[in-house]
C-alpha cells in the first residue's frame, strides 16, 4: 500500500527517528559525505590550500604510477610490512590462544599479561620506548653483550637493513586483540568433538589441524581482514620512530600521503593517494572475501546441534 505524503508527515515515528539520529546524520554529511566527494574532486586537481584547485584530469594518478619512485617505494614497503607482520601476528595470537585455552595455571592473569603490549602499544610513550629499547645502547644490545657476549654495534631502528624489521616486530608484539578473538573462538569449539577424536586415537597435532583449525577458520578470516586493513593504514609507529627513513626504508603509504598533503602541500596528489588507498583496501577486502569460500568453514546450524 502506497502511503501519501500527508500520512508520511503525520507519522510521529518519523520525527522521533530523525530527532534521535540528527547528531549522527549531521556528522555524516559534514565529516564523511562532503569530505569523501570533495577529496574525489581534489584528486583530479592541483591544489596547495593557498590558491584555488586547478583541474588537471588524471595527471595525479598518472604521475603516481609512472613518474614517482617514492610512491612505488611506499607501496612496496607497505605491502612487505603487511605480508610479514599480519601472518606472523596471527600465528603468535593463535598459538598463545591455543595454549591459554588448555588447563594452565593462572590462564586469566596470563591473558591480561599478553594483552598488555596491545593495550599500551598504540601510545606514543611505548613507541618512543621501542626506539630506545632497540637503539644502539638500548636494552636489546646491552642484553646481547652482557649475557651472550655478542657485540652488536648497530641501532636497529636507524640501520636501513633492520629498520622495517624492527617496526614489524613492534607490530607482531601487539597480538593481544587477535589473541582475545581467537580465545573466544576456541571456547566455541565443542569439547565433545575433540574428546571423540582423542578416543579415536588422533594425535594433538592432528586434532588441531583437522578439528580446531577448520572450526576456527571464520575467526582466522576475520582477524586476517582486520589485520590487512589495519596494516595498510600504519602510520604512528613509522612517523614517530623513523619518520619514513632511513632512505625511505620505512616510508609507509600513509606517511608518504601525510608528507605530500601537509608537508609539501600537494593536497591534490594526497587526495589521489587516499583514493588509491580506498580502492586498494576495498579490492583486497573483496578478494579475501571471495577466496574465503575456498578455505573458510562455516558450520550450518543443523550441524552445530548434533
Amino acid at each position: 500500500m502506497k502511503r501519501t505524503s500527508k500520512q508520511w508527515l503525520r507519522n510521529p515515528d518519523m520525527y522521533a527517528g530523525y530527532a534521535f539520529i540528527f547528531p549522527w546524520l549531521l556528522g555524516l554529511f559534514v565529516f564523511s559525505l562532503f569530505p569523501i566527494f570533495f577529496s574525489l574532486y581534489l584528486s583530479f586537481t592541483d591544489y596547495d590550500i593557498l590558491s584555488a584547485p586547478q583541474w588537471i584530469g588524471f595527471e595525479n594518478f598518472k604521475e603516481m604510477f609512472t613518474d614517482d619512485p617514492r610512491f612505488v617505494k611506499s607501496v612496496k614497503v607497505t605491502l612487505l610490512y603487511v605480508a610479514v607482520a599480519v601472518p606472523l601476528r596471527l600465528c603468535f595470537a593463535l598459538a598463545i590462544a591455543a595454549l591459554l585455552n588448555m588447563k594452565i595455571k593462572g590462564a586469566r592473569a596470563l591473558r591480561s599479561l599478553y594483552y598488555l603490549p596491545t593495550l599500551m602499544g598504540g601510545s606514543v610513550a611505548v613507541i618512543v620506548m621501542w626506539g630506545q629499547l632497540f637503539g644502539l645502547n638500548g636494552a636489546f644490545n646491552s642484553f646481547m653483550r652482557s649475557i651472550f657476549g655478542i657485540e652488536i654495534s648497530i641501532s636497529w631502528i636507524t640501520d636501513p637493513s633492520t629498520a622495517l624489521g624492527s617496526l614489524i616486530v613492534l607490530s607482531v608484539w601487539q597480538f593481544g586483540s587477535a589473541m582475545l578473538i581467537f580465545l573466544a573462538g576456541l571456547k566455541q569449539i565443542p569439547a565433545s568433538l575433540l574428546e571423540a577424536a582423542l578416543v579415536d586415537g588422533a594425535s594433538a597435532a592432528y586434532r588441531f589441524r583437522r578439528i580446531t583449525l577448520p572450526l576456527l577458520s571464520p575467526v582466522i578470516f576475520f582477524n586476517l581482514v582486520m589485520g590487512i586493513i589495519g596494516g595498510f593504514k600504519v602510520f604512528s609507529e613509522g612517523m614517530i620512530l623513523t619518520g619514513g627513513g632511513p632512505h625511505d626504508q620505512t616510508l609507509f603509504y600513509v606517511i608518504y600521503l601525510y608528507e605530500n598533503s601537509f608537508r609539501f602541500l600537494h593536497m591534490g596528489y594526497g587526495s589521489a593517494m587516499a583514493w588509491v588507498l580506498l580502492l586498494a583496501v576495498s579490492i583486497l577486502t573483496a578478494l579475501v572475501f571471495r577466496s574465503s569460500s575456498l578455505w573458510v568453514h562455516y558450520e550450518s546450524k543443523g550441524e552445530r546441534e548434533a
Partner: peptide
Amino acid sequence: PSEVLIIP
C-alpha cells in the same frame, strides 16, 4: 579509511 576524509 579515514585517510580519504582528512584533507577536506
